[in-house]
Computed example of a mutant assay.
Amino acid sequence: MKTMSHFLVQPSWRLIITDLGLNVGHVLRSAQLPADLFSREEAYLSTAQYFKLWQATEQLLGNPKDLPLRIAQSVAIESFSPLVFACMCSANLNVALKRLAEFKSLLGPMTLHVEEDETDTCARLRFCDTETPVPTMIAATELVFFTQLARTATRQMIVPSRLNLQELPSDLTPYTQYFGRPIEQGADITIAFSKADAERPFLTENSPMWQFFEPTLRKQLSELTQHSTTAEKVKSVLLELLPSGRSSMDAVAKTLAMSVRSLQRHLHSENLHFQEVLHQTRKDLAQHYLKKSHISLNEIAYLLGFHDSQSFARAFKQWQGQTPLAFRKQK
């Protein structure tokens, strides 16, 4: 799972904007993006530009509170990207989510971590730039997307077993009706499906089609990786490893398929040390959780890979010059 500072523009976004009843030119102009963005053979967006595109779409639609649901109702899921269409060819939702997790960074500034246990499969989404405010509708749209993927591919009214957002929509009623259960506030953007639903066969399974798409997706991911700094790659891996308590240089190097010495050398060429990247990643995430959520210090400590809240509090005071509670009161 890799995260880049820039990612490839998907031509299918033009179709999504059109299906929502908007003029593509007006949206691009409002987002201060090039008028020929979707016509370019290879165009890239930064995280800030990605968010601006979303914000422009929301504003031109009149800031509808049910935009994620409108997308689900008016846009064919195959319109999102070749990756999404390829995942429709998976054997089941477990396989589809793992494929999405590997290539998610092709679609935007985020990582997807998938965990399976004896009862369910949980997908956790994280946006990698914690400094840039995330438009409120993006996270809800992701939950709608995963649910729509499951329902479309199985032709069953799949109901998630758990739904969490860091900030809840102001009107939850239409979302509860769509999902079949309420969204709850939590530390991360998560969605879970029962083991039975996650293993339910996709009627759209098509192995030859996946074999057709996979080389292209891997080529795109490889090309994007070349544009990323080592620090960005390390931060991406830490976002995935921290909740499991693994934040050592050895664990990160192993995930990046390089030796510890090579990792140190690459970071040194960027005038950085591993501990600097680790501390900055933890600091950014801590500030994000304290500002944007109401989760306890114990939960934040766990998500950042600390053994207990006291260790987290001491580290935060060193970073920020004040306690986590004092920082939270200022938000």
Rank of each mutant, 00 (worst) to 15 (best):
F202N: 04
L60Q: 06
L238P: 00
Q59V: 06
D19G: 01
Y50F: 11
I17K: 03
L290K: 01
E205F: 05
V277K: 06
A48Y: 12
T147S: 06
L221S: 08
L83V: 05
S293W: 00
L217K: 05
T229I: 02
L297K: 03
M110T: 15
D250N: 07
T136D: 07
D129N: 06
A315L: 06
R40M: 09
T141N: 13
T154Y: 15
L224E: 08
R218H: 13
T57R: 02
T230K: 14
Q310C: 10
I295Q: 12
C87Q: 11
T130F: 09
T3Y: 13
L221N: 14
A43E: 04
Q10F: 03
V134E: 09
L241Q: 09
E276W: 06
R40Y: 01
S293R: 05
S74Y: 06
T225K: 12
Q226N: 14
V24R: 00
H294S: 08
R155E: 14
L112M: 12
L93E: 01
A192L: 15
A139G: 00
E270M: 05
L22C: 01
P182Y: 08
A86K: 11
M4D: 13
R181S: 09
L203D: 11
F213L: 11
L203R: 11
C89G: 07
L28K: 03
E199N: 10
F212I: 04
K331Q: 15
L239S: 05
Q264C: 10
G21F: 03
C128E: 10
E58S: 12
E41P: 01
T57K: 01
A140M: 03
I16E: 09
S105Q: 10
S79A: 11
F202R: 08
E167H: 02
R181C: 11
V9F: 04
T141P: 00
S46A: 04
D250I: 05
P160K: 14
K219E: 09
P174A: 00
A150P: 01
